[in-house]
């Protein structure tokens, strides 16, 4: 059966891929919550959760179950529809970003090539940016619809923080795009496989990108939208039960996806370092599996760094946050961009 240029088989393949990526995102996010608590414990000379199952591996299920069975409270004065829309948007946006990430080397079968990427579009990384820029609405709408001044303040903080840190993020990205010459994620990865990882050529760019990713995910030291000590609980103060769970979960999915984006942009994606794996003559599915695991290893490392930073650095003050974003990171990113452009021009001439 053919609908336009699209076969049913193609649709089926993509649906399976999308479903497994969403499942993977949820799974990783669940276990990132456990990893966060475990690592927080170890860094504070504690054990972390270790009662639910061996080493506490059932803890995320227990947490999720608890959230499901909590009483769901909708404030009387809130805007009901928008109150529901906020966490839904946060979740959708967190999941959509993963569409353009190449999760592994494509599988070559007798019937054709199965790409481990939902959409290898020309805009690639720009899609990520557009979705991230829409991600503010989840926080803003939720915070406003709660009809609580703390939530509103947190929402406004979150919005201005995310808008501010998108700028240095994109500027750091431009320097990468100068080198790869393409916005396609698959081409960015294959460029790195051929020429070495981007982090070698763009260490400053990676640093800026990483700091901005921290801010975009509302992670400490930039977790001002949920600053407990000054805004009670931030934008999700009025939320309870699974709606709160959606917000918290979306944060972890965001972390996962931004780690995947950073791994793809700067750490070579699914490339295995120091070896030319194409010469191994492995079965295609095995090669895809290995490349996928390599990407996951990189993502896990970046997730660990996210958590590591959270349990090391205290929260920034709001003016410090804005200072860092506008006065330090943007000039640095601009400098990085101009420098990379100049070097590239000099190398080409």
């Amino acid at each position: 059966m053919v609908i336009g240029a699209v076969t049913l088989w193609f649709i089926l393949e993509k649906v399976i891929l999308i479903a497994s990526i969403i499942g993977l995102s949820f799974f990783i996010a669940m276990y990132t919550t456990l990893a966060e608590r475990k690592i927080a414990g170890w860094m504070q000379d504690r054990h972390g959760p270790n009662r639910a199952g061996p080493f506490g591996i059932l803890q995320p299920l227990a947490d999720g179950g608890k959230l499901f069975f909590k009483e769901e409270i909708t404030p009387v004065t809130s805007n009901r529809f928008l109150f529901l829309l906020g966490p839904a948007l946060a979740m959708i946006v967190a999941l959509v970003t993963s569409t353009v990430i190449p999760w592994g080397a494509p599988v070559v079968t007798s019937t054709g090539i199965i790409s481990l990427q939902v959409a290898d579009v020309d805009m690639g990384i720009l899609i990520v940016f557009s979705v991230v820029s829409v991600g503010v609405y989840g926080i803003m709408i939720g915070g406003w619809a709660s009809n609580n001044k703390f939530s509103l303040l947190a929402a406004i903080r979150g919005a201005s923080q995310m808008v501010s840190y998108e700028l240095p993020m994109s500027l750091a990205l431009i320097a990468v795009l100068f080198m790869t010459g393409s916005l396609k994620m698959s081409e960015i990865v294959s460029y790195q496989m051929a020429n070495g990882w981007n982090i070698i050529y763009q260490p400053l760019g990676f640093l800026i990108f990483f700091i901005c990713a921290l801010a975009e995910c509302n992670r400490t030291p930039f977790d001002l939208p949920e600053a407990e000590n000054e805004l009670n609980f931030g934008y999700h103060q009025e939320y309870s039960s699974m709606k709160l769970g959606f917000y918290l979960f979306a944060e972890y999915i965001n972390m996962f996806v931004s780690s995947a984006v950073m791994a793809t942009l700067f750490l070579g994606g699914y490339d295995i370092p120091f070896v030319n794996e194409a010469n191994w003559g492995l079965a295609p599915w095995l090669y895809s599996l290995i490349s996928f695991s390599v990407l996951m290893a990189k993502v896990s490392f970046l997730l660990f760094v996210f958590i590591w930073i959270r349990w090391t650095i205290p929260r920034f003050r709001y003016d410090q946050l804005m200072n860092l974003g506008w006065r330090k990171l943007i000039p640095l990113a601009l400098f990085n961009m101009v420098l990379s452009a100049a070097i590239l021009l000099w190398l080409k001439s």
Partner: peptide
């Protein structure tokens, strides 16, 4: 600071 927290990951737990 991150060096300090990393060091504490491998210290004896007080629990």
């Amino acid at each position: 600071g991150m060096g300090i927290t990393l060091k504490h990951m491998f210290l004896k737990k007080a629990t």
